[in-house]
Amino acid sequence: MTDVSSKIREEARKLLKNGEVDVIIGFEKGSIPFSATPCFVRNEADTDKLIWNEYCGNNLARYLSEVRGKAGIIAKGCDTRAIVELIKEKQIQRERISIIGVPCEGMLDRKRIMMSCQRKDKTGIEDQDGQLLTRGDSLNTAVKKDEFLYPACHVCTNRNPVMYDVLIGNTIEERKTDDFADVTEFDEKHSEERWAYITDEIGRCIRCYACRNACPLCYCKECFVDSTQPQWVGKTTEQSDTLSFHIMRSIHLAGRCIECGACERACPVLVDIRILNRKMSADVKNLFGYKTGLDIDQPAPLSIFKPDDSEEFMLDV
């Protein structure tokens, strides 16, 4: 990983030196264990703080529409898919950004690592050769890092950047196509069971909107939850309001969500937000044959139609 970090620094330095970009968006070391924090590098000297490891989970495309001038971005597969969608939606211009692509084998869930061992005699967790060692007085367990992959990374089919100017390292093997087995499995349950699971998950939501703020595609200047005239959704944490918020958010992201899982990573109360977004992605694939974030020239599925779209869902009178 350090090798990748040094190559990233080199590329970043080159871009800043040649004046090709005004700012590099990347990661620096986080202030807590097992973390990396997004950072903005504006001069050559600071490029040394750029790092790359398996805790660089944030979707950096989030910041692209907000920075002024030309930007360089260190981008994983999911980040580049977000960039494709943002270009398509005319939020950023391709000429304005330089993409330093990095193939990614999946990011690790810091929160789950920290919670993995609740024993009082735990003294620390160490990262050693692809394993995480939990140490303590009478404790010495090793867990493979893969166990802590984010759920979104488990089903990722774009581990290599889909669009880049420079690629760091070699491309890695992609998974087979995503068959949305998790969605099918969930939908086979009884409706009351689904309702119980979803209300239990969404019921924890405290309406902090961290999911919305972390999402690269939630760029609206005024979000529907902030609108007061009309007030679409109540502002309470009552089940009805939180559910409506999450349903509407998933509908707004239907055909746009690139499934990076940034919403879920940002959630302070660990709500399974992807359960709704995955369903929309599955439907968009099955009904409209579309996968987000791959092709700039392919129009968004909800902006077009086919005369023979499925009418299976409609009332048959």
């Binding site: 939908d187 689904r194 349903i247 998933s250 239907a254 709704l276 439907d283 009904l287 909800l302």
Partner: peptide, 13 residues
């Protein structure tokens, strides 16, 4: 298209 997704999502939850 919009309604197909909404109906499916409501059933999903």
């Amino acid at each position: 298209r919009k309604f197909a997704l909404l109906k499916s999502q409501l059933e999903h939850i």
